[in-house]
Design a protein around this nucleic acid. Structure first.
Lengths: 233, 233
DNA sequence: CCGATAATTTCGTGCAGACGAAATTACTTC
DNA sequence: GAAGTAATTTCGTCTGCACGAAATTATCGG
């Protein structure tokens, strides 16, 4: 018999998914959410793998019915694949919330830790953690937490880089991918809930002058794109 | 280049260990602690693997300096291997304690959950959990928790099966390996801290009549061997 | 000391998942 | 529409970890 691959205990139905598979699905979901096509190169970049590796895996996942893959065109999650991605996303975000809130893990460490634990924690443990937090709707970075049934708010907010000058807005979320970026944004008080108003934007993707709370800040376009804004209610 | 194996983030020094490797080391430590030689068959039984698989892995671990292996004789942990085993054991037991105490995971589920998480949690997260519990010395089953520096109480207590008739004793620990057994022992109030006194023991490995707290119980030798006793202080 | 039995190892194999190099396809630009 | 470039796939290969079957070694009873 073949080696039994180490599986995450998360899958609810017949075929439990391995940790790499969960990572692929999550990445594809994320890319699709950004509106882009989940092409091989983009995926390879996101997962820090060689394109050749991604190509092979995508074919395998498609044959398992988790993806639709049109060669040379990119991949799209099937309903099954989407459900699996959302299950992993829920685990990730519940873990982030729990670690930050209950165990005091720093804002910028939470993502990396959750990235590992999400493949190991059972669904009932995740539910216990969520319950201990009062079933929060958002994680510490403002990202929405899918329910057990895979329901999630997929509203796409503008980034601070695109926010019109003069309009007041509220920070909805910040990207959790880069710990250093997260520390920087934290120093600027650019956290979910913060009030912002863009005063000026330099041309050619230049720096942005923005009021954060009561402080006037200058921030670059890369950092600005990591911050999502919605009109203040 | 070869595939980068999914590694546990636990190892402090150069070579991070994979989850299977951590499992082997933990099992060998456990068998040695029981006084037995960690032979291929015993290890295979404990890990639910074929002897052929164990044979191969033991050779690899020996070549990595984690084990001393004399072919056809069995394996013994080196200092390095022992340190790695204790690191994993600490993670396992801290997790068990945390899950049971803080998240209310049932006594008999805690082991399986910790078994997965121990390979994924970072050392600093484990330390945070331990700290949140006040750095406990024992896990919910009474097993001693190694310190960060690998110090652990290795006292071997008698089992209830060997405890002399008439002598009063205190339950020090119960084996956490079998969830059903754990539930059974829980029903009998045979938990760490319980007072016991053997009234009679039937010959030929027969049932044992034992006072647990204020109740007189009859228990079989297999269950009795899962319970460790020390003289009541 | 010799054979029977049990434990252990070797050998060939398989799968998952990764890689680089080379081949292929798609896209863009004259 | 052809040519060049960029993206993608195929191909052969590697490591980790597992397996069964067969060969080997140890051990125990006579």
């Amino acid at each position: 018999m073949a080696a039994a691959p180490r599986r995450s205990p998360a899958a609810s139905d017949s075929a439990p998914l391995t940790a790499p598979v969960e990572d692929y699905l999550k990445a594809i979901y994320d890319i699709q959410q950004g509106g882009d096509a989940a092409t091989t190169n983009v995926l390879a970049e996101r997962l820090a793998l060689a394109p050749a590796s991604v190509s092979g895996m995508v074919r395998r996942l498609a044959s398992q019915g988790l993806l639709d893959h049109e060669p040379y065109r990119g991949a799209r999650l099937t309903a099954t694949g989407r459900a699996a991605a959302l299950r992993t996303l829920r685990r990730h975000r519940v873990l982030e919330s729990y670690l930050a809130t209950v165990l005091g893990v720093p804002w910028d460490d939470v993502h990396a830790e959750a990235e590992q634990l999400e493949h190991a924690a059972s669904d009932t443990l995740i539910d216990r953690m969520a319950q201990a937090l009062g079933d929060p709707l958002f994680d510490p970075h403002g990202a929405p937490i899918p329910t057990r049934d895979g329901v999630v708010d997929e509203t796409r907010h503008s980034t601070l880089a695109d926010w019109p000058v003069g309009t007041r807005g509220t920070v909805m979320s910040v990207s959790d991918k880069d710990a250093a970026m997260l520390r920087y944004l934290g120093e600027l008080e650019l956290r979910p809930g913060a009030m912002v108003q863009v005063h000026a934007r330099a041309p050619y993707d230049g720096p942005i002058e923005v009021m954060v709370g009561t402080e006037l800040r200058q921030i670059g376009p890369i950092a600005a794109r990591a911050v999502r804004i919605a009109p203040t209610a």
